[in-house]
Amino acid sequence: MILSPEVLTLLILDFLFVLFTSIVFVISLQIWKSWDLNSTLASQYTLEKRSFLASTIIKFIFVIKIPLFLFFIFTLDKISNVLTGAMCGAGVLDATDVGNYLIMLKVINIYLFAFWLVLNNSDLQNPTQPYTKLKFALFSFIYILLIFEIYLEVDMFFSFEIEKLVSCCGSLYSSSSDSLISALFHVDNSLLVSLFYVNYLFLVIFYFFKNNYFFALSNTLFVINSVFSLIMFFGTYIYELPSHHCPFCFLQTDYYFVGYFLYGALFMGTFNGLVVIFKNELKYYKISMLFNSLYLVVVSLYVGVYYIRNGVLLSPM
């Protein structure tokens, strides 16, 4: 177990989250059971008031959760100094059994929270409040995931063994490891990179056709393709090292924290791209395209600049 100020801060805020989301969860169940907008009973009136409390709390938690996620990554980087063998967050996550699930769950939860807020917004703008039951049902689901996430996080922080040797990202993200990632090493780089660019092309096409379902679908694929191509291809140009495939190291000072920017842009782009499913508005298409393009330009620039400076690519395509 590690008792560092960062970890304690995360735990204190987790405790607050559990406290407040539990309140919302109770309200959600009540609303799910007896919400009826046409009713004039006092109980319905109370429920309407409570739904405001619920949405305020969720907004609050979401606003805290985003910077807290960055802080979480940052904490992992810092803990990596203490664990023997770990050089960045990847090693720390791998040090316990739950680390990798935790980070995935965290990302999924952020998407879900953001999704909930958009749903809430469109619900409140509509006088008949058509999504109220749906959004609280969705929240009950998010609540379970969130509690699970916090459980995993606490579990992870308590099960660190400082003495134990852990793997460094260099060995985790290499063809020798037997994880899911290693399967990627058998795929040709050129295939991954072309998939990434083709996917972007689809985004552009559906942007012009304004087809919301296909646009959202391409955005979902874009997340996966981006992360894979980042690990396998673009990352190596950020490090200027053909053998280094870590998706965490570029979050550190040595690479000017560029990772935060890349992941941030990717999140903004794809999230707004998913929102169009229910809000078929030009605004979301534009934001989505803007950030996705920004992401694409930055990662491509790394390759371009490297090629201009050195006249060769890192590895044969």
Binding site: P5, E6, T9, I12, L13, L16, F20, K49, F52, L53, T56, I57, F60, I64, P67, L68, F71, F74
Partner: peptide
């Protein structure tokens, strides 16, 4: 600065949520 921020601002605001509601 970040740690202290997380320990002061969110905690203050969370304490005021229910009363303001």
């Amino acid at each position: 600065l970040v740690i202290v921020f997380f320990l002061s601002v969110p905690i203050y605001i969370s304490a005021t949520i229910i009363p303001s509601w």
